[in-house]
């Protein structure tokens, strides 16, 4: 169990970060947001540098991309919550999304990285931008004056920063010092175990061709009742397969449909049946996992999306009776806008 960042650095950095966010929160008067931003940058920069210095064994090259993407994601997230203008906040959130999709690529989740960009940055955030533009008064040249009060002044920034950074400090203390077994997964020590983690793929790719092959005594090597042999590990079911020796473990299916694990025998796959590329790609593995192990969840997700669509349509179509006073206020505001633009252009000397 190795300590990644010393607790002293961690607590100091979270304290400085809380102070910085406190100062950077939007407020009307006496803005020292720049100092706050600097403090937050120092805090998170110190934490990331601490992780950089202490990560991995000595001599191992640090993964530069991780620090770039992580820093960008955190920095744009902070700017999102401290920027007084909603449109800018949404744009900074898009930057956060793009950075975290970079982190997904580093974690070899390519499909999810693209899905994140397309769904989040492409669809959800555009909807947010539309609503922000519909529901916000247009700013004029004098930016600060036209900001609505609820955008310009934060609500309880001190308490919020303290609570948020206390949570961060606790979570990271557990991550960095408390939690045991943060060594790498034993499967990483072997050159990839992706094929073993996809029994369905082996069944389709190796076992089905093998059913056609006859052994020396005329009977099929793999009978109709045989299934790919799997074994429950801590991280899910793994097929028993030896890629280098081209062996596949099969076992007869029991009466109740359960594979009998005690009767595993290793079958050698002939060279002509062995595919050129047995490597499991990310999309393939994800698709097999999604449809093979969570089919009911897809149905539920579909129903939820349908309900959300119907609900949003019904809600947004609803006619609202505005009170007379509010109507008058709106009319006055619109008239005032028209009057002020005319007057500022022509009447003033």
């Amino acid at each position: 169990m190795e300590q990644v960042v010393s607790p002293l650095i961690l607590y100091a950095a979270t304290g400085v970060g809380a102070l910085g966010v406190m100062l950077a929160m939007p407020k009307r008067r006496g803005g020292i947001a720049a100092i706050g931003g600097l403090l937050v940058a120092v805090a998170f920069g110190g934490l990331l540098l601490g992780m950089l210095a202490l990560a991995g064994p000595v001599g191992e090259a640090p993964n530069l991309f991780f620090y770039v993407f992580a820093g960008l994601a955190i920095a744009s997230g902070l700017r999102m919550i401290t920027h007084p203008r909603p449109v800018y906040a949404a744009l900074y959130f898009i930057l956060t999304i793009l950075s975290s999709s970079g982190l997904y690529v580093l974690l070899s989740a390519e499909f999810m990285a693209f899905a994140l960009v397309i769904i989040y940055a492409g669809a959800i955030l555009i909807t947010y931008l539309f609503v922000i533009m519909l529901a916000t008064q247009a700013p004029s040249e004098e930016d600060e004056e036209r900001l609505s009060d609820y955008d310009a002044v934060a609500n309880e920034p001190v308490m919020a920063s303290i609570v948020g950074f206390a949570m961060l400090a606790l979570l990271s203390t557990m991550l960095f010092t408390g939690a045991p077994d943060l060594e790498r997964s034993p499967y990483l020590e072997t050159p990839g175990a992706t094929l073993a983690s996809q029994p369905v793929k082996i069944e389709r790719m190796l076992l089905d061709p093998l059913r056609e092959v006859e052994g020396p005594d005329g009977s099929p090597i793999v009978g109709e009742d045989d299934e790919i042999a799997t074994r429950e590990t801590g991280a899910g079911r793994r097929a028993i397969v030896d890629v280098e020796a081209r062996l596949v473990g099969v076992s007869p299916r029991g009466d109740d449909g359960v594979v009998d694990a005690s009767a595993v025998r290793m079958v050698s796959v002939p060279d002509e049946l062995w595919p050129d590329d047995v490597q499991g790609t990310n999309v393939e593995g994800l698709g097999l996992n999604l449809l093979g192990q969570h089919p009911m969840t897809i149905e539920i997700a579909g129903v939820i999306l349908l309900m959300a669509m119907l609900g949003a349509t019904v809600l947004a179509r609803k006619q609202v009776d505005i009170e007379e006073a509010l109507k008058a206020r709106q009319a006055r505001r619109l008239a005032g806008d028209a009057y002020s633009t005319v007057s500022s252009g022509e009447v003033e000397p």
């Binding site: 580093l106 974690l107 070899s108 034993p186 499967y187 990483l188 072997t190 050159p191 990839g192 175990a193 992706t194 094929l195 073993a196 074994r231 590990t233 793994r238 028993i240 397969v241 030896d242 890629v243 280098e244 020796a245 062996l247 473990g249 290793m266 047995v278 490597q279 499991g280 790609t281």
Partner: peptide
């Protein structure tokens, strides 16, 4: 045999 597999994930 369980843990020998094709190289799909490089040291990530």
């Amino acid at each position: 045999a369980l843990i020998v597999g094709q190289s799909g994930f490089p040291d990530p």
